[in-house]
Simulated assay, not measured.
Amino acid sequence: MERLWADLTQADPSFDSPHGHEPILRDREAALAGGTMGVSDWEEAKERIRRNVACK
């Protein structure tokens, strides 16, 4: 498992993010720096995702 994680966390110089991702990331970084967006720990984020995608 450790070898798999080490491989997955290596940067791949041949990988290009999809074209539309860069402006979204810039906007989110600016919102975080400006205090209009916060962060969650992973457990909180998973719970929020579960609530948002749960079948109703």
Score class of each variant (00 low, 15 high):
residue 24 I to H: 12
residue 47 E to A: 13
residue 32 L to E: 09
residue 13 P to G: 11
residue 22 E to M: 07
residue 35 G to M: 00
residue 52 N to Q: 12
residue 37 M to H: 01
residue 55 C to D: 15
residue 5 W to R: 15
residue 8 L to F: 03
residue 3 R to W: 01
residue 30 A to G: 05
residue 12 D to F: 04
residue 50 R to C: 05
residue 16 D to S: 14
residue 14 S to G: 10
residue 10 Q to E: 13
residue 48 R to L: 06
residue 50 R to Y: 02
residue 18 P to I: 08
residue 30 A to D: 15
residue 30 A to M: 11
residue 33 A to T: 02
residue 49 I to N: 03
residue 10 Q to C: 05
residue 15 F to K: 14
residue 55 C to M: 14
residue 29 E to K: 06
residue 30 A to Q: 13
residue 23 P to M: 06
residue 47 E to L: 05
residue 13 P to F: 05
residue 8 L to P: 01
residue 6 A to I: 02
residue 15 F to S: 13
residue 7 D to C: 07
residue 46 K to D: 12
residue 37 M to Q: 13
residue 3 R to E: 08
residue 16 D to M: 12
residue 3 R to F: 05
residue 1 M to R: 05
residue 9 T to S: 13
residue 25 L to F: 11
residue 35 G to P: 05
residue 44 E to P: 05
residue 5 W to T: 14
residue 18 P to G: 09
residue 52 N to P: 01
residue 41 D to G: 07
residue 46 K to M: 13
residue 38 G to Y: 04
residue 32 L to S: 03
residue 22 E to Y: 08
residue 39 V to R: 10
residue 51 R to V: 08
residue 21 H to A: 15
residue 1 M to A: 11
residue 47 E to W: 00
residue 8 L to V: 06
residue 1 M to V: 02
residue 39 V to D: 08
residue 36 T to L: 01
residue 9 T to H: 02
residue 52 N to T: 01
residue 3 R to K: 09
residue 47 E to C: 00
residue 21 H to Q: 15
residue 39 V to L: 11
residue 8 L to Y: 07
residue 21 H to R: 15
residue 19 H to N: 12
residue 55 C to A: 14
residue 32 L to I: 02
residue 25 L to W: 11
residue 33 A to W: 05
residue 26 R to F: 06
residue 19 H to S: 14
residue 53 V to S: 02
residue 15 F to C: 12
residue 18 P to A: 13
residue 26 R to H: 09
residue 29 E to W: 08
residue 12 D to N: 15
residue 48 R to W: 02
residue 1 M to D: 05
residue 19 H to R: 15
residue 53 V to I: 13
residue 33 A to M: 07
residue 44 E to C: 02
residue 42 W to E: 15
residue 1 M to Q: 03
residue 48 R to D: 01
residue 44 E to Y: 00
residue 15 F to M: 13
residue 25 L to A: 13
residue 11 A to K: 06
residue 23 P to Y: 05
residue 27 D to S: 12
residue 39 V to K: 11
residue 23 P to F: 09
residue 18 P to M: 07
residue 18 P to V: 02
residue 31 A to E: 13
residue 29 E to L: 13
residue 11 A to S: 12
residue 25 L to S: 11
residue 52 N to H: 03
residue 37 M to I: 00
